[in-house]
Design a protein around this nucleic acid. Structure first.
Lengths: 237, 237
DNA sequence: GCATATTTGTCCGTATGTATA
DNA sequence: CTATACATACGGACAAATATG
């Protein structure tokens, strides 16, 4: 594999050096790399050499290896024994499993609607309005993050921090696939009205309707993502 | 905090030194420690000194810290900044959330019963018979592990490796709480007949019945665990 | 409240092993 | 097959934080 031809992301990395504020050094380094990877600035498949990245961020290899270990557990990097770490590349099977998991978990969370505190539903409303405002101002990346906030709110209906953490990682993984999209607007914008409909079902405590809307929502999103996936890579190794 | 008075577990650790077979050194070290912690040989609350444990296993501090990082992510250890790592101590709130998560996820998995391959159900049958054989031979620890295999089989109905991994970690966490039980027989043995009943519902593809049996199963187990939890620690800080 | 001892956090240098050109 | 580049793992060192008296 050719790993990285331009290497422009290394210079960008150095700009984050002073951004390493609080927390353990390894965790701060992991935070910077997580941001760069999920934002698509470091494309999937590129190798992250210990020496090069460590020099760019000004940390030792020991510290960097701890950060790598964190991100490998989050499945944003893959670790090949004695070969190094690489930015994860998602294939179609990954997307299928991730959406299967979303349908399962978010569906189960909606089914907990009856016992969920109203505070959670209000937070979901906030995320919907946040997305609509962002769309009105044509801030498409913000529309995408508002959409993720919307789904995080749904998962909160389940009332389990561990489940929420799992799904945060799932969403981060999916972002690796979102970047094959040339136009983020076309992908996220159509779901604004769907989110509004789903919110209405939640606020009227209509579990059945919410479950139905959610399942078609996720099925459509998966289909759309898989379609552009096949277009982008007709013959992947 | 007094951490560890007897320290007998250090000598036991050294017996595992040669057991470190394949894989990265850090991962093998993590494997040994994971075993010792989930088996209850290293009691919750004890501090794992880098120097002491590193000497016992014959690995350097840097390598050991990588292993610690792995187990901290699995929530078997807790990391206090500048103070070190400790074996996790579960409180009642943890148990409540873990069982909420089990009800949610295993319930959702059973609801996927229709689309699950028969191979998975056959594996569940195997785990039931495995538990019954162990009980007949009075091997109570094996009854406990067979019970965990049973639930892992149920989760496999969902067909998501990521979900399975999450729940494996949840089960490992729960083992930290199981050890407050003085008698593992009384806790796990009564569920043998319940598992047999649930298996019958699964094999006849009766989703409704399986869902019902599972929910009362988990509710009872949670109640029983919380009860002995309150007995063991009437006034926890 | 202060001084000391212990432990962790971080970095460096180096030797060994492994994969790839 | 050899050579090269890189990851793996070790040991030592010092700074920083914490606990103890």
């Amino acid at each position: 594999m050719s790993t990285s031809a331009p290497r422009s992301w290394i210079a960008e990395l150095e700009q984050d050096k002073d951004l390493l504020g609080r927390g353990s050094t390894a965790e701060r380094v992991a935070g910077v790399l997580r941001e760069r990877v999920t934002q698509g600035h470091i494309p999937p498949g590129t190798q992250l050499s210990e020496e090069v990245v460590g020099a760019a961020l000004g940390v030792s290899r020991n510290t960097l290896r701890e950060a790598f270990r964190l991100l490998t557990h989050e499945r944003l990097l893959v670790h090949a024994l004695n070969r190094g770490v690489f930015v994860r590349t998602l294939d179609a099977d990954d997307v299928v499993e991730l959406y299967r998991l979303r349908r399962l978990v978010e569906g189960a969370a909606v089914r907990e609607l009856a016992g969920a505190p109203t505070r959670v539903i209000e937070a979901i409303r906030t995320s919907v309005e946040e997305g609509e405002r962002a769309a009105a101002d044509q801030r498409w990346p913000d529309v995408a993050t508002a959409d993720l906030h919307f789904h995080r709110g749904i998962i909160r209906l389940a009332g389990s921090p561990r489940l929420e953490e799992l799904m945060l990682r799932v969403h981060a993984e999916l972002r690796l696939a979102f970047h094959v999209m040339d136009d983020p607007r076309r992908f996220h914008a159509p779901y604004l009205t769907r989110n509004r409909e789903l919110l209405a079902a939640l606020e009227s405590r209509d579990t059945q309707q919410a479950e139905l809307l959610l399942s078609v929502y996720l099925a459509d999103a998966e289909r759309q993502l898989l379609r552009t996936f096949d277009d982008a890579r007709p013959l992947a190794p």
